[in-house]
Design a protein around this nucleic acid. Structure first.
Lengths: 345, 345
DNA sequence: GTTAGCACTCATGAGCGATGAGTGCTAACA
DNA sequence: TGTTAGCACTCATCGCTCATGAGTGCTAAC
């Protein structure tokens, strides 16, 4: 038994109706609401086939059908349509971006908040994994006898700092000397490359007399990479999960709230292949069990060639994919444009 | 009608029992479980008085009594006893602090997580309101033709940075000159004082030829104060609120989850008079309506004389105050000690 | 291949009564 | 005058039954 055009039409009707109402969809509903020109009995036969094929399922005997993950997948890949953004929404979005464009840290947060407000779903946002950006400038700033701050400016103009405990005192002048040496070697490399032995050796050579300090500094940057730099990642509009049927159960709700506090897990949730505009992971396609009745739609925004951050919207598997993808793409497009404009101005 | 010793004893029994069981407490329970040597009938009479005095109330006619906010207040102020910390708990706490002591940013987060784990309540934690610390060192680091990073090291050894758009290009040397001038004037002042006109004038005088830049810098610091510097504040163990009776209702849960995403509100929740070891706000004593069936116990931890951050535990009004206060004080005492030790070492 | 008809399933929700915890009040007691 | 036993009363809770209705699968006729 294979799919045919009529089966697809029926599947689409089931999914659209279920997304809209949240109730299992019966054969009668489809035959009346969606003008397919066939009777409910025929639709029942087709639905039995669709169920056998794994696209829909029945919560219990006397209920209608609901789409399975596989059903949604087919819908998302082949049937879903983008929507127009309502002019009111456009205005709200433009307004927010204009207000926050100069503060990247707040922009990310505000964007997350905005998107969750516009969609009534939970939103995760992150600033970029800093490991992928290049060092533009590095500066050591003395703090006290035992510590210096290592300030790193990236070529995306993000500034990061990290306090280093030093083996011996570094006064202001010494800091300057080291700063110069380090800059020579590190300018233009990505934070990732710093852990490579090649670079380490070449620096330690140049800094012979300060080699212990040089390696402290490199260690500190390493450390920054590995730990601190899941830098800004957070959830906004978490309360919206309370409206998902999947979380009518307290224990399920607890699990997802716990997930929302695990930065490393959030990073994985936001994982997004930049080759595609948006990535959609449906239900069990997510690796985390509390997400198995949710879908997440992720995308990223950029400055120039760099991914600045990712954004993901978490809704129930029966979320309005078309609407959400449209909002998400609209918002990120505009942020990307404004960021590039702002950076060129 | 006045309070007397017996009434207090009965009130205490009611509160202890209610904290323990969560069920409204009847006269019979008290006469049997708590050896007060009087009959349930007598206790009933006293309970009627206690209700009239506002210390307890009845959820419905045929139910026992539960403490009111006023009842808890009396309990907390006069009756509550500290508890000993279980050796297992002590070990867990010591372990965590040892691991994270070198990373203040992570320490705060881990502490919040730990406390919520130990108490099964939600925990808010913040690093300090940076406005109260003094500037130890300030450094301008060039980013590109249009911007410099202003890196501020505080005397608590926290490093903050803020990107400033400059009216004209500042090269490395110019940055150094400005850095020196600014340091002369600002070293030792609190971030708060920078907004004072007196300081602004004195600096602008010294920097005549760069006065426009000086004021940009001061503006940026101002900005840092006002916006960015609700720097790190977050909630851990939010899922625990699902166990509070107050949040069995979905709308109430939604409200508190929303509150948890509002940094400015969280700051107010954590508000804590450093003159006292811990502050307890019970039920309606909290200004936010979603908190009216919750209590929050707040305290702070310090380096030297400075408040480094606040921590607050949110539980239901019927939380085990004695236990929670003990855990909180134990943890913060240890962190404070370790921080001071670490800083002196 | 399509459709009408029919028996069957089962979640949902309303209604009802039994149960029991707890009260306030009264009258007797010390 | 304070304490206690006794009793009638209240009311939330829980389990039970039953009616309702949405939706199905199957069969037989078109």
């Amino acid at each position: 038994m294979d799919m045919n055009e009529r089966k697809v039409k029926i599947l689409e009707a089931i999914i659209r109706d279920y997304i809209q109402t949240g109730d299992p969809v019966g054969s009668r509903t489809i035959s009346k609401k969606y003008g397919l020109g066939i009777s409910s009995a025929t639709i029942r036969n087709e639905m039995a086939d669709l169920e056998e094929l794994g696209f829909i399922m029945q919560p219990h005997t006397s209920a209608g059908r609901i789409p399975s993950d596989k059903g949604y997948r087919l819908y998302v890949d082949n049937l879903m349509e983008r929507r127009n953004i309502h002019p009111d929404m456009e205005r709200i979005i433009a307004e927010m971006i204009k207000q926050k464009i100069s503060r990247i840290d707040m922009l990310v947060e505000e964007t997350a908040r905005l998107i969750s407000m516009l969609t009534n779903y939970a939103t995760i946002a992150s600033s970029m994994p800093i490991t992928q950006v290049k060092i533009k400038h590095l500066q050591l700033v003395p703090i006290d006898e035992k510590s210096v701050a290592c300030v790193i400016v990236t070529d995306t103009n993000i500034v990061k700092n990290h306090v280093i405990r030093t083996p011996k005192e570094l006064d202001f002048n010494l800091c300057m000397i080291l700063t110069n040496i380090l800059n020579e070697s590190l300018k233009g490399t990505t934070l990732n490359e710093i852990s490579l032995d090649k670079i380490r050796l070449s620096i330690e050579e140049k800094m012979k007399e300060y080699s212990d300090i040089a390696s402290s500094v490199l260690d500190a940057i390493d450390d920054t990479l590995r730990t601190e730099d899941v830098p800004d990642i957070f959830v906004r509009g978490a309360n919206n999960i309370l409206d998902f049927e999947a979380f009518s159960n307290k224990e399920k709700t607890r699990e997802i709230l716990q997930l929302f506090e695990e930065k490393l897990h959030l990073v994985k949730l936001l994982d997004h292949d930049p080759k595609h505009r948006t990535t959609i992971r449906i239900g069990a396609e997510n690796i985390f069990s509390p997400m198995k009745d949710c879908s997440i739609i992720t995308t990223s925004y950029t400055i120039g060639d760099y991914t600045l951050g990712n954004i993901g919207i978490i809704g129930p598997t029966r979320m309005d994919y078309g609407q959400v993808v449209s909002v998400l793409e609209y918002v990120t497009t505009h942020i990307t444009n404004m960021l590039n404009e702002y950076n060129d101005s």
